[in-house]
């Protein structure tokens, strides 16, 4: 199929950006969306133009590197799929597709469709872990975990850190990302000793970079891993608990 693409081009963080229209020809319906962009780039390169810069790595929906706004939807029209999993079967010959980078204050554009998502690492760094130095672990079966609990924790653990939740949110909030990690660790028995400190530090760090939640639930709709905003509710509860018990945070001064 032949397609018309409106793609956001921007040379660098400080440069002005804008849409440029391209024609891409000979796209197979079996190709993935990113393979369609590969094809465009190959056509651009051989025509002497600079290819469109976009990020991707595993191309099977698990690494979280890719992320594009396709016709205004994070990761495009398919439910519960990253844009690398979107296939061109979703389109018909002659379609026009608009491709943009994530739009959020906390994610400045680096070039074309690539943004800086490093605040996510800062949130994890603030407390998204269980402090167990290598070698200090008891036997793995020493702490039984009910299957239901393990499954519930897993619902948060599946987050791939792609940033679609932030891009979808009218406030540019990162509540779903933060809540997913907090839920994963706070639900497990191993995560209890640091529960308050983790929650307080991660939320406080999150708020340095991102907007706040106004319960639109757009994040949930955009999440390629179907993570539920129920986890945000849990984070809110744990945050109040952490603050009111004054145990939150190792950085008390």
């Amino acid at each position: 199929m032949d397609l018309t693409l409106r793609i956001w081009r921007q040379d660098g963080p400080e440069s002005p950006g804008g849409f440029v229209t391209y024609q891409v020809t000979g796209v197979s319906a079996d190709a993935s969306f990113l393979e369609m962009l590969d094809l465009l780039n190959e056509q651009l390169t051989e025509a002497g133009d600079e290819p469109v810069v976009f990020e991707s790595d595993c191309r099977e929906g698990i690494c979280g590197t890719c992320g594009l706004m396709v016709d205004g939807k994070p990761h495009g029209p398919w439910e519960a799929a990253a844009v690398c999993q979107l296939h061109m079967r979703a389109y018909a010959d002659g379609d026009m597709i608009t491709v943009e980078p994530w739009r959020a204050d906390a994610f400045p554009v680096i070039r074309d469709l690539v943004v800086d998502r490093s605040p996510f690492d800062r949130i994890i760094e603030a407390g998204g872990y269980i402090s167990v130095p290598t070698g200090a672990a008891p036997d793995a079966n020493a702490i039984p975990v009910a299957k239901e609990t393990a499954d519930e924790a897993f619902e948060g653990a599946v987050c791939i850190g792609c940033g679609a939740c932030v891009a979808a949110c009218p406030n540019g909030a990162a509540q779903l990302f933060t809540a997913a990690k907090i839920a994963h660790l706070n639900l497990l028995p191993q995560g209890q000793p640091e529960r308050d400190a983790r929650t307080a530090d991660m939320v406080d760090t999150m708020e340095q970079f991102f907007g706040s939640c106004t319960n639109h639930a757009e994040c949930q709709a955009a999440c390629p891993k179907n993570i539920s905003i129920d986890l945000i509710a849990m984070m809110n509860r744990d945050y109040a608990r952490a603050k009111l018990r004054r145990r939150g945070g190792g950085a008390m001064t």
Partner: peptide, 17 residues
């Protein structure tokens, strides 16, 4: 042991092991 202590959610049986 290490991964479990870190919170890696390995599959479990109903009894918790």
């Amino acid at each position: 042991d290490q991964a479990t202590a870190q919170g890696v959610p390995f599959a479990r049986e109903y009894g918790g092991v």
